[in-house]
Design a protein around this nucleic acid. Structure first.
Lengths: 206, 206, 206, 206
DNA sequence: TATGAATGAGCCTTCATTCAT
DNA sequence: CATGAATGAAGGCTCATTCAT
């Protein structure tokens, strides 16, 4: 187990370093903010000097570009394959996305904060916006379909509902300094969907 | 011809300038990001030179401090006076807060972005966190009280519900690049509370 | 006379500083080479910190731009007003230019070295090239006119003569480490035109 | 199909590489300027990585040293063997040097630019200066001898003449952006010496 | 012999902050 | 109260150089 502490001068192939840098960059932007997104911070988190970063990325902007790429990929995996029932489809998406966000706590912060948009080049920023709105559109479409099929309660406004659902997802990872104690957030997240489902459903009486 | 060229050359008392600077600072941080929060940007938005800013504030950090102060004040006004029915109390708060946020679109962005926390000094950051969690606590307490009084549906988890409600509020001002067309967002926001109310209600009737 | 040695924190208006910087820049590029053309070198030669340079110029490139502007102006003053006799016109130009170059020893180095072209932005580089070729064209046109009027010796090739004349001018300020002792270069320069005149003249015999 | 892919992957002995590097270095300094004289530029022109350069040269300075060595050699070959008539001797030198410069267009640029002096170590710089002044001295001595023997026109000042002759040589390779069209420059160069000869001659006949 | 990762210094530029005016 | 010049500390990026592979 004493496999040495030689922490100096680790020489890793670009692929590895690139991945490390992107990971670190995501965390820095998400938790320390755009202002902390500096070459030096990245470098020292990865165990390098700032100059070394640029052997792997042409510029800071390029890093953000790849960060966004990574986000695109991960978010894209949440969309469920063809499922007939729109509410079922929505549920699957919601649970997938919740899982994703809990697995990558930095993500929702990133998605919400505009940090990325502001650090990214124009092209990458556009891609990010597109990735974001894809989720929104997906939710909204599910709801519209459900509405047409009469699955929704009369008082349900699809746009408002979309907004609420997204808000619910976003909040999942913004739990740090909140009521919730430690890892109970997991349970919390499980309790959320049923309530949303109830919200969407046709009220029996009233 | 010398019809009041005063507009430039304006030499204003500190009180006025301070207010201007804080307003501008809020907008910059909210919409252009922490990176754009520079003395020069502030100054030129206010119609000054960057040097002049420091006649009114000791440092950039001091500006952030006052920004947070302003936020504290505005948020504090949303809490309703003593109202018996916890759900009614919650509703009033929700509507107040919604109105506040729609009136100050920069606010929710600010609250969410962590920009402030990261730019502020330790003391101010703490105050901001407290202001944030006060709202959360308020919501949660309303819900707990309602639960105890049997006003909530059986499936309602107070923590999850808190999370959803906050999410709904947050989303109100994050509508820019979304489905919603222009000013319909106002209507959308009005449609939100009924749905939440329904979500909280007992499945049967009320 | 003891008007102080306070050399610190001299605060000068932009106009003055701009001029100082341009002067210094010319000398650095001319005598120390493009590699020494750094903000720090300029700054310390002027009595500033490197950062201060950019209060007066937007970028290094902008400095080069103005340097070229200055050169354009000075060179432009050498062209004589309308003079009938082409050889007389040429002589006046030659003497003007010689005087100019001896007064600004850095100039010919600058004009020859391509240092500037390489440091300048595309637009400024073009202007410089134009300024250079204007002199060449001027000389060549004088010679062509003289040729047509039969003022030149039969063996005189106008292009070759142009080349020689320019070479003679250029050499005037490249005398530092040469045979010439100190300031005799002035006399040398005076001796040059007669020889060129002789070179251009029709040989009496042969 | 495996018909000699050797072209890339070339692994060459130091001798070859050294020569390649020096050649490339000369061209870069001459045409792209001192600022472009970087290990990376050299390496990529030679088909290597920048690191590889230092297997053949200890430092950039060492490259410049060898570049100067090469120049010394080539320039040295221009001096004619013992020839009695000083003007004849001078003519031979002039033609040799012209040929040399037209064959190595980068040379005169190099000689004039001071790029080398500034990039070279002190010792190499001295060698370069010596190589330069040797030519000047040679010309001047020819002229002085000619003067003593009464071969020169009365108005001929040896120092001024030296200057003109050097200028003429220098200009030979600075013809790029000039009047001269393309390859006529060759002819131009041939036309130069007769004019200089005439300039040196006694005004009457010979 | 050559590649490719890494360092450290240096350069351009921006920025908070100070201060003479 | 405000401007404009100046400083010093970063920050992004390049570059010579080293060295493991």
């Amino acid at each position: 187990m004493n496999v040495t502490l030689r922490e100096k001068q680790k020489r890793k192939p670009t692929d590895v370093r690139k991945r490390e840098i992107i990971d670190v960059a995501i965390n820095i932007i998400a938790f320390d903010g755009a202002r902390a997104f500096t070459a030096k911070n990245i470098a020292s988190a990865v165990g390098m000097t700032s100059g070394g970063v640029f052997r792997h990325f042409e510029s800071m902007e390029a890093i953000v570009g790849d960060v966004i790429g990574r986000i695109e990929d991960i978010l894209a995996a949440d969309f469920p394959a063809e499922i007939g029932d729109p509410l079922e489809r929505l549920k699957i998406f919601f649970l997938n996305r919740s899982r994703t966000i809990l697995a990558h706590p930095s993500f929702s912060r990133l998605l919400l904060s505009d940090h990325l948009e502001q650090t990214a080049g124009a092209e990458a920023a556009k891609r990010l916006v597109k990735a974001k709105s894809r989720s929104i559109k997906f939710i909204h479409e599910c709801l519209q379909e459900a509405e047409q099929k009469g699955f929704l309660g009369a008082a349900v406004e699809t746009e408002a509902a979309t907004s609420i659902i997204i808000g619910a997802i976003v909040m999942l990872s913004h739990n740090r300094q909140q009521v919730t104690s430690t890892t109970k957030s997991n349970k919390t997240s499980e309790a959320v969907w049923p309530m949303i489902a109830h919200m969407l459903s046709a009220p029996s009486g009233r």
